[in-house]
């Protein structure tokens, strides 16, 4: 069963501070950091947010998000001018819309099937979906080129990232903030509250007159749209897409990002993604050589150990650790509350 979660509402001041810092980041950090750490963390965070959104609000832990984002990325790369793939040479903005529509429609269709299962079965069917998407694009080279689609045409708003990564960074930042605020607002609507009802007590939802399967399907569709956004942004980031970038390892990586950040709060997506990007890049410099156990090339070992520590110490991820620290700061140690007088039940 899913643990009981309450999806706390974020604080506006904290968000404003973080966004303000992010907005002046191009002045403070190198182009390399802006690109390889911050931009990457922002789009990877959106992918993780689609997973966390489903887990936190609908109680559905999905491994299908990378499958969806792969479809969106591949669709975009095929629809624009590129080296490999279908090369439909559409206008990039039109292709962007097309890719999101395709990802959302596939998400709704697949969600309609997967919504009938729960828990571990849901996890397995979504994992199967991601693997299916990977093999599809690995084998249908007409849609994925030989070893990927390269030199993908980007929309004008991205500029030319090789010389100036700032426009792409700001685009990704704006989209990430919109995704964060949009999903938060959605959770307060009739649909969003219903989704949380489905998470907590599906039987009660049915008894109240709700169509639980339809709610789950639509929740998956919303998450698919968000995963699609991440997929297209990942193509903007890499200017290419290969089947290898949407394989099982990437599926696991997005789950790891979500768990490290915290599965029960949307903010966790970006906290996890930033942590992941930092370790990915800098572990190669920081990590000393210790026999053949630890070394600069042992990124997976490091991230695995961190993953284990977090799963064991704080199921709520880094955000969960932060929350419990803040709770301790806010409520100083005090005498235990007086015991309530036991009521006699005759």
């Amino acid at each position: 069963m899913n643990p009981i979660v309450s999806t706390k509402r974020f604080s506006w001041p904290a968000l404003i501070v973080v966004v303000a810092l992010a907005a002046i980041a191009p002045l403070l950090v190198s182009d390399f950091f802006l690109n390889s750490i911050l931009t990457k963390a922002l789009w990877l965070g959106i992918a993780a947010a689609s997973l966390i959104f489903l887990a936190a609000y609908a109680g559905m832990v999905s491994l299908g998000q990378v499958g969806i984002y792969g479809i969106a990325g591949m669709a975009y790369a095929n629809l624009v001018l590129a080296d490999g793939g279908a090369g439909a040479a559409w206008n990039p903005y039109l292709a962007l819309i097309g890719a999101l529509v395709i990802a959302t429609v596939v998400g709704l269709g697949f969600g309609w099937i997967a919504a009938r299962s729960e828990g571990i079965y849901f996890l397995m069917i979504t994992l199967a979906f991601s693997v299916l998407v990977y093999y599809f694009f690995s084998q249908v080279t007409g849609l994925s080129g030989f070893g990927g689609i390269n030199s993908v045409d980007l929309p004008g708003v991205v500029g030319s990232p090789e010389t100036d990564p700032v426009p792409r960074y700001f685009l990704t930042l704006v989209v990430a903030v919109l995704v964060f605020l949009g999903l938060g607002a959605l959770s307060r609507t009739a649909f969003g509250l219903g989704m949380q009802g489905v998470r907590d007590e599906p039987a009660r939802m049915r008894a109240l007159g709700f169509d639980v399967t339809r709610h789950r399907t639509l929740a998956f569709g919303v998450a698919a749209f968000v995963a699609g956004v991440a997929g297209v942004l990942s193509v903007f980031y890499n200017t290419r897409i290969t089947p290898g970038s949407i394989n099982l390892a990437q599926t696991i990586d997005v789950l790891i990002v979500a768990v490290i950040g915290g599965l029960y709060r949307l903010e966790g997506a970006w906290v996890g993604a930033l942590t992941y990007a930092l370790i990915d890049n800098y572990s190669r410099e920081w990590v000393p050589e210790v026999g053949n156990v630890l070394g600069p090339a042992r990124f997976n070992t490091l991230i695995g150990v961190l993953f284990l520590i977090i799963v064991l110490a704080s199921p709520g991820g880094l955000i969960g650790i932060w929350d419990s620290l803040m709770a301790k700061v806010r409520t100083p140690r005090r005498a235990p509350a007086p015991k309530p007088v036991p009521q006699t039940i005759e």
Binding site: T189, A190, G192, L193, G194, L208, F210, D211, H215, L218
Partner: peptide
């Protein structure tokens, strides 16, 4: 909400 319309209202 359950017995009414608008279960899927997202705004």
């Amino acid at each position: 909400l359950g017995v009414g319309a608008g279960h899927l209202r997202m705004v």
